[in-house]
Computed example of a mutant assay.
Amino acid sequence: MAKPEHPPSNGWDRHSILAEIRRQKMPISFLAQQADMSPNAFSHVWTRVTRAAEEVISDFLETPAKELWPDRYPIQSSYFGSSKSAGLSASQKQHKPTDNAVAA
C-alpha cells in the first residue's frame, strides 16, 4: 500500500491502474482475497461499476476512487432528472377542476 510515485499525467485508465498495482507486486487475486471478495468482482471493475472493488483498489493505491474512475463519480442515483431539479411542476396529474361544458 503505497501512493504512486508518478501518477499518470493524462489521468488514470484501466492499464495505468493495473500497471501501478503490478509495480507494487500485488496480484489482483490477493487484493480480492484480503477483502473477502470474489476475484470476479475485480475482473468486472474495468467494465462496470463495482463500488466495493473500486474502494479496495483506491485504498490500496491511496488514491481517491473518483480520481481513478472520474466518469463514475459523483455517484448518480438515477439517470432521469427529478421534476424538482428541472423546474417542472411536481406532478403532471394536477387536480384541475373539471370542464362541465365539455362533459355535458
Rank of each mutant, 00 (worst) to 15 (best):
P7N: 07
A32W: 00
D36Q: 14
L68A: 03
L61P: 02
P7L: 10
Q76A: 08
R22V: 01
W46Q: 01
D99M: 05
A41C: 14
E67I: 10
E54A: 07
A19Q: 15
A19P: 07
G81W: 00
Q76N: 09
D99I: 03
S43N: 15
I17Y: 04
S9D: 15
P70D: 14
R23H: 14
K96I: 11
A65M: 03
S43W: 03
P39D: 09
S16C: 08
M37W: 11
I28D: 02
K25Q: 15
L18C: 08
F30D: 14
D71E: 15
F42C: 15
P27T: 13
F30P: 01
L18F: 07
A41N: 15
G11F: 01
A104T: 03
T50Y: 00
R51I: 12
L88A: 09
K96C: 05
N40H: 04
E5Y: 03
P8C: 04
P4F: 06
A19K: 14
N40R: 11
Y79D: 13
I17D: 04
V56D: 11
Q24F: 05
R14F: 01
A104E: 07
K3L: 08
K25Y: 10
K3M: 12
A2W: 00
A19W: 12
A90T: 04
T98S: 08
Q24Y: 04
S78F: 02
A103M: 06
T47F: 01
Q34I: 02
A32C: 09
H6Q: 12
S83T: 13
V45Q: 04
S82H: 08
W46V: 08
S16A: 13
W12F: 06
A104D: 14
R22L: 10
D99K: 07
Q34D: 05
L88C: 10
E67A: 15
F30H: 11
P4D: 11
